[in-house]
Design a protein around this nucleic acid. Structure first.
Lengths: 156, 156
DNA sequence: AAAAAATAGGATAAAAAGGTATAGAATGAA
DNA sequence: TTCATTCTATACCTTTTTATCCTATTTTTT
């Protein structure tokens, strides 16, 4: 309804990274297996997250990706601005190039307060909260239940 | 942020139809000119709105599209269910196939109340309200100001 | 120094969305 | 009837998004 597949994968991956041991690089292919998404595609996404300074990347043996030191404070907004573009929450619902308080589309004043709620949610929802939720075991991050990949439990 | 271009055009077109004389067919090309969108593309959209019973269509001379008799009560949700598909507001933010109260993604309980607000907005916002807003002259429906198309004032 | 393991990056392929073109069918008027 | 007008239907093209593949390049281990 709101997010591209790229963004969905990015958020899932970031939450997963946040559940892992800090500072310990995690392999792209392990994240991909855990989330059940195509590894080469996910690699591109992780690379762009690294370019955007949300992840660190290390090449070579013992390489991989991991959160930056303060990564747990990353908000959903931080991620989505990278994956959806900087105007993510700025556009008119009807697609008008100019739509502001002065030159408004007929939906503008109805939409703005709802949009504010969305923005608030994206800003206040951070990886530490989300990773705690996942670690509690009450929430699932991917479609396939964990138990179907017992070989990954060791990695986790 | 939320709507496909097809949906944006559909909503714009429906609002425009609602500002017109009831029962009087309006030409696709006039709507396209007024909204400044490609006419052949808009034609497809209007046809699908007609198939979905939101518009009536008439062929031949004096033909065109117009709202159905009770069309002013059409809500944004009515339109978007047609253009975005019936699961428009039903999907998980993270794209999980299964995401409900029982098997929730970590965003679920944060997202649901915001989504409820969006759904409420879409359901309660109807064409009569929106067309009144446009007819008041305080809101604009398309990017190009009306004055640039004086030849359309007669049509309107 | 060489081998192995990992990301980086560019080229490419497939699918979906956006947009165009064309032929056909219905309607009203000359 | 015939013609212009308008929607209908289908096929097609283009662009964007999603996904894959292959070849560097970097780093660690041997």
């Amino acid at each position: 309804m709101i997010l591209s597949r790229t963004s969905q994968y990015a958020v899932q991956a970031m939450i997963y990274m946040a559940t892992q041991e800090p500072g310990q690089p995690i392999l792209n292919k392990d994240v991909a297996a855990r989330l059940n998404v195509p590894a080469p595609y996910l690699a591109k996404i992780l690379q762009s997250l690294a370019k955007g300074n949300l992840l660190e990347s290390f090449r070579g043996r013992l390489g991989g990706f991991c959160l930056r030191p303060e990564g747990l404070r990353t908000s959903l907004m931080d991620i989505l601005v990278l994956t959806e573009g900087p105007t993510f929450t700025k556009n008119c619902l009807l697609g008008l190039k100019q739509c502001s308080k002065e030159t408004a589309c007929p939906l503008h004043f109805r939409w703005v307060p709802v949009k504010e709620r969305i923005i608030e949610l994206l800003n206040e929802t951070t990886l530490d909260k989300l990773s705690e939720a996942v670690k509690s075991g009450k929430y699932r991050l991917a479609d396939v239940p964990l138990r179907l990949f017992p070989e990954l439990d060791a990695v986790a």
